[in-house]
Design a protein around this nucleic acid. Structure first.
Lengths: 184, 184
DNA sequence: CTAGTATCTAGTCAATGTCTAGATTCAGTA
DNA sequence: TACTGAATCTAGACATTGACTAGATACTAG
């Protein structure tokens, strides 16, 4: 599909190299053809971001599901999956969390919400395991999302290496699981 | 200066609207004139990112300095300054932490390092106050930087509101200060 | 078979980044 | 003072791109 090819360009050569006309050329169609599918370049970018959220949500859900009996390990697996996604698709993650001047599209917003819902599910498993109170899950999930995204941003912007990122994950999750009981 | 005007365009209309030719027009010079100062559009963007890091570092240093006697309040002030910067300059912050396909320029890297050094200074004050061990400062500063950046990213990408961001700061710092003593 | 929708073609336009040759300005020096 | 060299700017050119349009073509549902 057109989006697959666009995603590959994004991955290999960054967002600046992503051109509607070049995608059309590669696909062997005329330069106006993509317009039937995406009215805008920004519509294409939105579609890419949307797919990115869905894929990222899938990957961390699956990672967490690989450790159903140990909440700490599940969190760790999810975080690791998040950072690995960031390393694999840095430009896409950038796009997903780009600062838009106008409001993000509804499709992107709901895809982002699906990611957040997935993370909420992972965190809720911790309630059953006694890691936190049910009433704190919302706030804590938000904090977890911010932490994952922050660590990933440091890695994709080349401020730290991937292995430093992994170490940060350890620190973050240790702290995450220690805090709630001691915190109040 | 040219960079001031570029920063204003970035703030008001986003990175896509930032055009060398338009800057030249506004400055009343020919379209080729900016080339004497910036060989590339990306060179201009790098210069903007560099300035952004310097300004952000100044702002959080000053914020933390306003609470010299209370480390927790200093951290809170720094975090709040960070998020306020993000709200004021979302596109600039995006630029500062953009995922580059090639390595970031040396100038940008060292400006980013100055921000990190500033945060290290703030954290080091916590050692004297007994909040953490000196040996943990490096790792904890990295985690703090990731947390600030993550919260800011959620705000600038419109996933959460600014006041939710402020609440997240509270949670993050509470957790940050509780963890170290209990964590090991 | 037909009507209507989806997709594609081909042409056009304005805007942009980049490059180049040459003019202009200006500070420091012989 | 006169000259040199660097910094800055001008003006023109070119390829590329996103956006828009009118019209052709393919495809699907009734």
């Amino acid at each position: 599909m057109l989006l697959d090819r666009a995603e590959a360009v994004l991955r290999e050569r960054g967002i600046d190299a992503l051109s509607l006309r070049e995608l059309a050329r590669e696909a062997g169609v005329s330069h106006g053809a993509p317009r039937s599918h995406f009215i805008d370049r920004s519509a294409l970018l939105d579609a890419l971001a949307e797919r990115g959220f869905v894929r990222l949500a899938d990957e961390i859900r699956e990672a967490a599901a690989s450790e159903p009996d140990d909440h700490a390990r599940a969190l760790h697996a999810a975080a690791s999956a998040y950072v690995r996604f960031a390393v694999r698709e840095p430009a896409l993650l950038d796009l997903m969390f780009a600062a838009k001047v106008d409001a993000p599209s509804q499709a992107v917003l709901s895809a982002a919400e699906r990611l957040f819902d997935t993370m909420t599910g992972i965190m809720s498993a911790g309630v059953g395991a006694g890691a936190y109170d049910a009433g704190d899950v919302g706030r804590l999930t938000l904090l977890l999302a911010a932490t994952f995204q922050g660590i990933s941003a440091l890695v994709t912007s080349r401020r730290i290496t991937m292995s430093q990122g992994e170490a940060l994950i350890d620190d973050a999750i240790t702290r995450f699981l220690v805090g709630p009981s001691a915190g109040r």
